[in-house]
Design a protein around this nucleic acid. Structure first.
Lengths: 151, 151
DNA sequence: TCCTTATAGATAATCTTTTTCCAGAGAGAA
DNA sequence: TTCTCTCTGGAAAAAGATTATCTATAAGGA
């Protein structure tokens, strides 16, 4: 995990560089993303934002998230297939990295492995695709659920 | 790609083994899945099913897809993050395998590489998760879009 | 054939995300 | 500081995919 404050400043700088306005709501959301330990969904971010801006709307959250997604600074983790709920977001580390998703409690952890260059080359060679990005997610049972669970 | 007819028979056998009823609609949908070259979404399957059963409803398609998903016989490929549309489904090969998704035309190809056992072990060791399954998707530009594209 | 029960079909509901519209605020220029 | 231009926030409605509900029907075994 990188330094949250550093990540926050990095995001601020990138917004400034693109001449996006640094509204208080936006700054607060960016701070939330940079400092978030877990992988919050839009509703969670919205809830936390309400503490500071009681009149904020969920649309604002989505607008900023989409902005950051387009800039490649936020990863969207879709877990719709699992619990039926919406996406989670990772604003800590913009580089593609694997996630471990608990199919029971939906906790998400960052994985530390990365795909080998060999795999990337093989895939590009086989398919002819020019690969821009990727996602690697593992589904399983997290340690805590293993302890509780009836399997 | 495996033999579609063989895959179809395999799915039929598995449904029978679990005492699910083999309704004509279900059989037709399973045949569509087993024989589908691409990665259709629910609407596409529904459209094709209408040819044979003009009164079929989309709900029926989803019900059978969910049934097969629970049985682990259909993979759901979520591309919501890309085009905003719904999931695609892969009923040819139930084992996790990578997909190449074109971010321009949304074409999906099967990748042939697989994760090394070493990567799986590393991830499990690092996280403590008991990994059940995974998904590996590559995003990029497909060969055809590379030719056309302004980039 | 009969009986039990899972399933199809129609429709409404749900849920997340996006769109629309406009007032108001951000940021540079004077 | 003030002016001006435009981007952005907020509220509400809309969109779009998926699921739930309810009932008649059909599948499959006895």
């Amino acid at each position: 995990m990188r330094d949250p404050e550093q990540r926050f400043q990095e995001l601020m700088a990138k917004l400034r560089a693109r001449a996006y306005r640094l509204t208080p709501q936006r700054v607060a959301l960016i701070r939330l993303l940079a400092y978030s330990e877990g992988h919050p969904d839009a509703a969670e971010l919205y809830r936390r934002l309400l503490d500071q801006f009681p009149t904020t709307s969920l649309a604002t959250v989505y607008k900023t998230l989409n902005l950051l997604k387009e800039m490649g600074e936020v990863l969207e983790i879709e877990i719709n297939g699992i619990g039926g709920e919406g996406s989670r977001f990772d604003g800590n580390d913009p580089a593609p990295h694997p996630h471990l998703i608990c199919v029971r409690c939906h906790r998400i952890m960052d994985g530390q492995v990365s795909l080998t260059e060999e795999i990337l080359q093989t895939v590009q060679g086989q398919s002819g695709y020019r690969v821009i990005s990727h996602r690697l997610d593992f589904y399983g049972i997290c340690p805590e659920c293993q302890v509780q669970g009836v399997n």
